[in-house]
């Protein structure tokens, strides 16, 4: 067995190099999230009273759907040129492959989200750079990436994979979406930590379960 973390690092570095060359994931996630923020503004109307109420919901709808888009890319890239076979041929543990791919996706999603936040701040006229909100974004994105990496490895081998990933992913991550929307709402209203403890706990519990289960299940998903 090769060492765990060096292989994880190699996988991540490979994905980062590819992303630097193509910018596929970050650009598509960004563009999609920005567009949805703009469309939401039209859908909800320009009234200044409504924006603070709906802002957390809008933010997480944009993040969730943009995330699905990015997650689809991560395995399409491995699958379409047959590189998944190349990965499977290496003596690394399948958990290392999972963690490497998951951390790669996490990195790109966080990057896109950090770029979206200021735009969100301007369009919805709020100041989102609070440590509480950043923590919620980090935790929720970990959950998205850990569940999403497993599901996109499944979806990439199915017919009509563009539909299959959101079908599998969205109902299962509902607890994260609920927790994230609630905690962000509290954070944006300037609420205290104690008001958001329960939602953050909810997301954290989901993250742990998703990570442990996905790492276990990944091997069963990769085999042909």
């Amino acid at each position: 067995m090769t060492k765990f973390w060096p292989t994880v690092a190699a996988l991540m570095w490979k994905d980062i190099l590819l992303e630097l060359r193509t910018r596929d994931i970050v650009i598509s996630v960004l563009a999609f999230a920005l567009l949805s923020l703009v469309i939401f503004n039209f859908a909800l109307g320009p009234s200044p009273q409504i924006t603070p109420v709906v802002a957390p919901g809008v933010l997480w709808v944009a993040f969730t759907f943009a995330g699905v888009l990015g997650l689809t890319r991560t395995f399409v890239l491995e699958k379409d040129q047959g590189n998944l076979v190349g990965l499977l041929l290496t003596p690394t543990s399948r958990e290392a492959i999972y963690v490497g791919k998951m951390l790669g996706s996490l990195f790109f999603m966080l990057l896109a989200e950090i770029i979206i936040l200021p735009v969100f701040a301007v369009l919805f006229n709020i100041s989102p750079f609070r440590p509480e909100l950043l923590l919620v974004i980090l935790l929720a994105t970990i959950g998205f990436a850990s569940m999403g990496t497993l599901f996109s490895a499944i979806a990439v081998n199915t017919r009509s994979r563009e539909i299959m990933l959101p079908m599998l992913f969205l109902p299962v991550v509902v607890p994260i979406i609920i927790g994230a929307v609630m905690a962000s709402g509290t954070a944006l209203e300037g609420g205290s930590w104690s008001d958001m403890v329960k939602s953050i706990q909810l997301i954290a519990v989901f993250d742990v379960l998703a990570l442990v289960f996905s790492a276990f299940a990944f091997e069963h998903v990769l085999q042909e």
């Binding site: 040129q81 047959g82 076979v85």
Partner: peptide
């Protein structure tokens, strides 16, 4: 560890 495989697909990342 003990095998090498070559298939009709090159198993290479095109952008690397």
């Amino acid at each position: 560890r003990n095998i090498g495989l070559v298939t009709h697909q090159p198993l290479l990342y095109g952008d690397l």
